[in-house]
Simulated assay, not measured.
Amino acid sequence: MKSVVIVTVGVLAIAATSYVPGVVSGRAVAQNNRSQPQLQLRLEAEKQVLQKDNQGKQKVSWQALTGKAVVKPGDVLRYTLNGENKSDRPINNLVLNQPIPKGMVYVLKSANTTNQNSKITYSIDGGRSFAENPTVKVTLPNGTVDIKPAPANAYTHIRLQLPSLAAKTIVKATYQTQIR
């Protein structure tokens, strides 16, 4: 039987979790964690800072959000999720779910990862289903229904799926949101 690990990380949370094979419908089967690989997760956030250089060209930099950071509507935040396999064994079929925080809109096509074998998918229904390119049905003025790409404000979750995370390695994923 294949093992699947599903992990959800809250905004600006730092979490460490043990690999638990047999996650089924949100319920975990108790296992002996001493013999299982361990995954450490860290989520960081940065605010986009736009400045003009000496030639008047706009330069983008990122400022870490720490303590009582101030953000306002329109600000773009970049989240970086680091997952480290601290064990001596690979973690197979790893799934990391990340909700888009309330009051924020996902910046389309901003998600990427350092792992070439990973797959990034998105949910527009609160995390119940995921697709690489979510779509919505739109009723046109003439009454016909058309399928269109989902708008950025419909995205609710990002999912990173890795077939395997080797022992003693790190995977990194980033994505951006904009404050409404």
Rank of each mutant, 00 (worst) to 15 (best):
P73D: 07
N142A: 06
E46S: 10
L160N: 03
K52Q: 14
E132N: 13
K68M: 05
V138A: 10
L41V: 14
V29W: 01
F130I: 07
T80N: 02
I14E: 06
D146G: 02
Q58S: 12
S35G: 03
E132G: 15
P90I: 11
V29S: 11
I170R: 14
L81H: 11
I179S: 01
N85G: 04
L65P: 08
A13H: 11
S118D: 07
R128P: 00
G103I: 15
K72Q: 13
A152M: 02
S118P: 08
G56M: 06
D75T: 09
V76Y: 01
T174Y: 02
Q40H: 10
Y19Q: 03
Q51M: 10
Y155N: 00
I158L: 11
G127V: 12
P151D: 07
Y19D: 01
F130V: 08
Q63Y: 06
S129R: 13
N54E: 13
R34H: 08
K102D: 05
L65Y: 11
A16V: 09
R42D: 00
I158E: 00
Q161F: 11
V71M: 01
V145E: 09
V145L: 04
K119H: 10
A150E: 05
Q116G: 10
Y19G: 00
L160Y: 04
M104Y: 14
R128E: 08
T113Y: 02
N32A: 12
I100D: 00
M104R: 15
N54T: 14
E44S: 15
P73L: 05
G126T: 12
K119G: 01
T113M: 04
L41I: 11
I179M: 05
G22A: 05
V20K: 00
A111V: 11
T113E: 02
G22N: 05
